[in-house]
C-alpha cells in the first residue's frame, strides 16, 4: 500500500499530502489528465488496465489500491 501511495503521489508536483484515506478526486490538482496519468502508471508498474469507471468508483486511494489488487489476482 505504501508503495502504491508513493507511486500515485509522484504523479503530482507536491507529493507529501497523500495517504490511504485521501479522497483523491477532491484534490485541487486532480483533473481528467491526472486520471490518465494514474491509468498509465498502474499499467506500467502493476501490469493492470484500469478503466475510467474503476477510478470513478474509487473514493479513496485505499479503494483504488484494492481495485488494482483485485485486477492483479
Amino acid at each position: 500500500m505504501d508503495q502504491f501511495i508513493q507511486d500515485f503521489a509522484e504523479l503530482f508536483d507536491e507529493p507529501g499530502r497523500f495517504a490511504p484515506e485521501t479522497e483523491f478526486k477532491n484534490d485541487p490538482d486532480w483533473s481528467s489528465l491526472s486520471g490518465i496519468s494514474v491509468i498509465a502508471m498502474v499499467d506500467k508498474k502493476y501490469g493492470v488496465a484500469l478503466k475510467g469507471r474503476d477510478i470513478q468508483k474509487a473514493r479513496t486511494l485505499a479503494d483504488l489500491y484494492q481495485t488494482v489488487k483485485e485486477k492483479q489476482a
Binding site: I36, I39, A49
Partner: peptide, 12 residues
C-alpha cells in the same frame, strides 16, 4: 470523450 476509458482502451 471519456478520456480515461479511451486511454485505457488505447494502451490495453
Amino acid at each position: 470523450m471519456n478520456g480515461m476509458n479511451v486511454f485505457s482502451f488505447s494502451i490495453g
